[in-house]
Amino acid sequence: MNFVLRRLIQVPLVALLVASLCFFLMHILPGSPFDRERAGPAAAKAAVEARYHLDKPLPVQYLYWLSDVVRGDLGPSLKYRNHSVNDILAQTLPVSFTLGWLAFGVALGVGVPLGAWAALRPGSWGDWCAAFLVLLGVCVPSFIVGPLLILIFSLKLGWFPAALWGGVSNAVLPVTALGLFFAARVARLAREGITETLRSEFIMAVRAKGAGEFRVLTRHAFRTGLLPVVSYCGPMLADLLTGSFVIETVFQIPGTGTFFINAFNNKDYTMIVGITLLYAVLLLSLNLIVDLAYAWLDPRVRHD
C-alpha cells in the first residue's frame, strides 16, 4: 500500500517538474507568439503581451502560471485567442482518447491472439500471417498506411468516410492505421514471450504434474508469457499519443495531438506547457496502473 501511496504522490510532482522545465525553456527562447507577417502597430503587440503578463519578469510569469495551475486553470491559448487551454483540451482530449483507446484495444485484441497463435503453431499459416503483419506494421510508416487505407477503402470502395470524426464508421480507418503498428509490436512480444515460457522448466514441471494442455496454456503459459506485453503497455500509451498526431493529421481528426505539435511552431507557451502537464499526469497515472497490473500477473513482483 505504501508503494502505491508513494507513487501517487510522485505523479503530480514529476508532472509539475516536467511542465515547469517546459515553461522556462519556452520562455527563454527568443520571439513572441504575437509575431505577425504584417507588422502591426507596436502598441497593439505591447497591449496584447501585457494582457498575458508577457511583459513581466520570468519568475513573476511563472508564479502567475503556477497559481493558475494550482486552481486547475491552464491559462488562455496564445494562438487560439478565443479559447482557453482548458477549453481546447476539454474538446479535443476525448477525441484523442477515444482514438487512443480504440487503437490500444486493437493492438491488444489483435496482437495478443495473433502472437499466441503464432507461438503455439510455429510455421503454420497463422504464424506467417502474424509475421507479415509485424513486418507491415513495423516497416511501413503510418503516414503511408493511413493514406493507403483511405485510397482503397474510402475513395475506391466507398466503405468508410475518408476523414473527420463523429460516427463509428469514421473511426474504422484511423483506428486501424494507428492500431496496426502497435498490434504488430504486441504480436511480436506475445509470440516471443509465450514461446520462451513454453520452453521453460516451469512449464515442463506443470506438464509433468499431469495438467491438461488447455490448463497449462491458460493458467501458466499465457500468464507468464504475456508479461512483456503488459510491461509494454505503459510506453505504448505514450507512443499512442505521439502516434495519434500523424493519424489526426492524415484523417483530419480534431484531437489534441495536432495542437500539441503545432503549439511548438506557434510558440503557444500556455498550450505546450498545459498539454505537457496533462499528458504527464495522465501517462504517469496510467503507468502506475500498468505496474499494478504487472504485479497482479507476476507472482514474483511484490511491492511493499
Binding site: F97, L99, L102, G105, V112
Partner: peptide, 12 residues
C-alpha cells in the same frame, strides 16, 4: 482489449 474497443466505440 475487447472491453476498450467496446467502450471506445460507444464514445463516437
Amino acid at each position: 482489449g475487447l472491453l476498450l474497443l467496446a467502450t471506445g466505440l460507444s464514445g463516437c
